[in-house]
Structures are given as C-alpha cells and as structure tokens.
Write a protein that binds this DNA or RNA. Structure first.
Lengths: 122, 122
DNA sequence: CTAAGACCTGACATTGACGTCAGAGGCAAG
DNA sequence: CTTGCCTCTGACGTCAATGTCAGGTCTTAG
C-alpha cells in the first residue's frame, strides 16, 4: 500500500510517517518513481510506535529499542536491552506519578462535590 | 521567604516560579523594592502545580481548575468543575494507555530474556 | 561602605513532533 | 490528453515550559 493508506489505517498523518522514516523507525520500499510502499504488517508497527510515543519515549529512544522488537532472536546489544528495561521502569514511575496526581484531583473533586450538594440541595 | 528559597524548597527553578506567576498560577506579595515574598504554604501549592504539569495539564488548564482547589467552599463556575472532572478522566485514560505500553514492552523484554538465556546458558 | 550574591524585567534561544506550504512529478479514469 | 488526487522533497512555522543572558537594583555580612 502507499503512504496515504498506511496513514489512514494506522491513524496517523502522512507527515508523521515520513518523519518516522527520517528517524529510522520505519522502512519503506520505493517504487521506480520514488513512491513509498508498505506491507500490511507495517500498520501494527506504526501503532506500536505511536504507543511508545504516547508513553513518552523520544524518537531516539524508540530507535534504540526497536531492534529488540524486530529481531529478538538475535542477541541485540546490551545497551539496547538495558534501555528497554530502563524505559519500562520509567513508564512504571510515570504511572505512579499519574496515580498520585489523579488522587489529588479526586480529593479536590470530592470536596467540591460536597459543597455543591450543600449549596443546591436536591 | 523570597523566590530563591521557595524554588529550593519546592524543587523547581526560579524561572519556573516567575513563569507560574505570569500564568496566574501563583501569587506573590511584593516588598517595597519589588521583590516577591511567599508564605510557607506556597511550597505545597507549587508542588501541586508541578504534579499537575507532570500529569500533562497545560498552564491554561491548571489555571482553570485551581479555583476549585483554592476555594472549594465557594461555588465555582460549572465550567471549572467540569474541567476538573474531565482532566481527572483524561489522566485515567492516559494511565490505561501507559499500562498498555508497559505490557507491550514487557512482552518484548520477556522474549528477549528468553533468547538471551538460551544464548548464554548459565 | 563595599563586595558578593539574590533579585528584578525583558528578551531571545531551545527542543521535538509534528503542521503547512510550495513547486514538481506520478497515476488512474474519462 | 486532461483533470484530479496522491506523492515527492525541502523548508519554514508552531507551541509550551524553561534555559539563559544582559543590564540594573536590593540586601546583607563584614
């Protein structure tokens, strides 16, 4: 498929796909005229990339860990694997942070609800 | 206390504190010469602000919900309260997203560990 | 009084993942 | 062959929180 279809199916912009390729996250085969072509499998790869971006990984970091995804059967560099584990842990810490933030907001919500119920009984 | 001490105690930069004030998140009393002065209570306010930033709220959004924090006893505008709840839900969705991302990385980690164990037995 | 260090305002710089535009070529349908 | 849509490269724009620098004032220890 060409870039527009991949963009639609993966739910990202064409611009983003070109950017991913520029960052070494995505590879395309080129038609004689230079147009990018992709296989069906790239859809989920793009979705994984999006998920990692959403989890706060940078392009550079994603590029660093993708080898472990692409060829787990080969022994990838220790740095790549270590980075992978490290990012997993960073995400865990981020989740904890978000849970605390949510708790803080929950308390604010509760207090406000209480006052609202009081001010507008029924 | 002056701005430097607040910065140290809250763990942020002086620049950030001035920015928070510019965004209407923080108020300071000024000495005759124009220097900012804060009370001890501002320390936790700054920490809350930091926590909300870390949870992905923008300055504008934080400014929007802070009234509910400052005076839950008054009936704040419905928009403010609604925004509060809305952000809480956004954080919940973000947490779910991070959990999925972590699961994905966990699977990659496991597969890689398996191959590593195999390649370097013991 | 004086020097060091904290503070002031204002302004420009940074970073990263895109948006957007320009100018040119590719491709299928009529 | 033309019309319309997709794609190409390259480049500049954006946004938000913060860093950083300049030039000047304030405060405080000695």
């Amino acid at each position: 498929m060409r870039i527009g279809e991949l963009a639609t199916r993966a739910g990202v912009s064409v611009r983003s796909l070109r950017y991913y390729e520029e960052q070494g996250l995505l590879i395309s085969t080129r038609s004689p005229s230079g147009q990018r072509h992709y296989t069906d499998g790239e859809v989920e790869r793009v979705q994984l990339i999006q998920r990692l971006y959403a989890a706060g990984l940078s392009s550079r970091t994603i590029a660093e860990v993708l080898p472990c995804v692409d060829s787990p059967s080969e022994r990838n560099s220790d740095e790549a694997f270590e980075r992978l584990v490290q990012e997993r842990d960073r995400i865990s810490r981020h989740i904890d942070e978000l849970l605390r933030a949510r708790d803080a907001l929950d308390r604010v919500v509760d207090v406000n609800r209480a006052h609202r119920a009081q001010l507008t009984p029924r």
